[in-house]
């Protein structure tokens, strides 16, 4: 099985909310003092691909788009067990919408050539958009299953389970295909010492827009169809009414009474 997984470097979604700030000048979010990470859903997608590699063998290439990417961050899929890492790294690639980002990724996928499954996360933890995967499927003309939690490889097909609100669907999809992976796939594996050492020695391949033959007007900011006009933090009233008592039990009784009074229970 030849597989490709798209991953993204993001600000750490597990960081304390207090470190989250919006830089008004750039209209961008920052996690002050917290280093970036590989997006959790990209890790779930990597895990999904590695499970197949464990069972069936094959090759996994990780693909990451951005600029000034931190090597120790973007090498995470390598340390987990991916074979190669390709970076689309250039100022022209960044700040795109789902469409212009997928446009560049699709060109890179075409350049990589043969593959059986292209993986993406269900969504990224920063934009929470969930659109790059479906966009790649449209550009590349691939069948696509989203919200995948289990994958079984059959002859020329994959049998996958897709999350729904009250359970899951079992879907058979022809290969090659695109799958977006949900967290129910299972916890991403920890990199082994061997994996970390191998990742250290491996240098990523870096592709510029010219390497994948994309027009400047179709990638990054220039290629956007959806434009973010405003990014803001919702105003919190921050007026929590704390119920107190001489004992925790007394406070609990007061809380119950207050909730009743407010018609919440």
């Amino acid at each position: 099985m030849d597989m490709i997984v798209c991953v993204k470097q993001v600000i750490d979604p597990e960081a304390p909310p207090a470190s989250f700030k919006i830089d008004a000048a750039s209209n961008k979010a920052v996690m002050a003092g917290v280093p970036p990470v590989i997006d959790p859903y990209g890790e779930f997608a990597t895990e999904a691909a590695l499970k197949i590699k464990d069972a069936k063998g094959g090759k996994l290439t990780a693909l990451c788009l951005g600029n000034a990417l931190l090597r120790e961050v973007v090498k995470k899929p390598l340390s987990m067990g991916a074979d190669d890492l390709i970076l689309l790294e250039d100022p022209a690639f960044v700040d795109g919408d789902a469409w212009s980002t997928a446009f560049a990724l699709a060109a890179a996928v075409k350049k990589i050539g043969k593959f059986d499954i292209l993986f993406c996360g269900r969504e990224a933890s920063d934009t929470n958009a969930g659109e790059v995967g479906p966009a790649l499927a449209e550009i590349l003309g691939l069948p696509c299953v989203t919200l995948v939690k289990k994958i079984e490889i059959l002859d020329g097909k994959a049998k996958v389970e897709r999350m729904t609100a009250d359970g899951y669907e079992v879907i058979e999809v022809t290969l090659p295909c695109l799958l977006t992976v949900s967290n129910e796939i299972g916890e991403p594996r920890y990199p082994t010492i061997k994996g970390i050492m191998a990742a250290k020695r491996k240098e990523p391949v870096v592709w510029k827009p010219a390497d994948i033959a994309v027009e400047a007007g179709k990638i990054g900011v220039a290629g956007q169809r959806a434009k973010m006009t405003k990014l803001f933090q919702p105003v919190k009233e921050g007026k929590c009414e704390i119920l107190t008592g001489d004992t925790p039990e007394e406070a609990a009784v007061k809380l119950a009474l207050r909730l009743r009074e407010a018609k919440l229970i």
């Binding site: 919190k236 921050g238 929590c240 704390i242 119920l243 004992t247 925790p248 406070a251 809380l255 207050r258």
Partner: peptide
């Protein structure tokens, strides 16, 4: 942080608060 998001709250050990609640 949850108290910044909450409308009502009790500061205390849930093991004592929840059964009484």
């Amino acid at each position: 942080n949850i108290f910044r998001e909450a409308r009502f709250g009790v500061v205390g050990d849930w093991k004592k608060v929840v059964p009484a609640l």
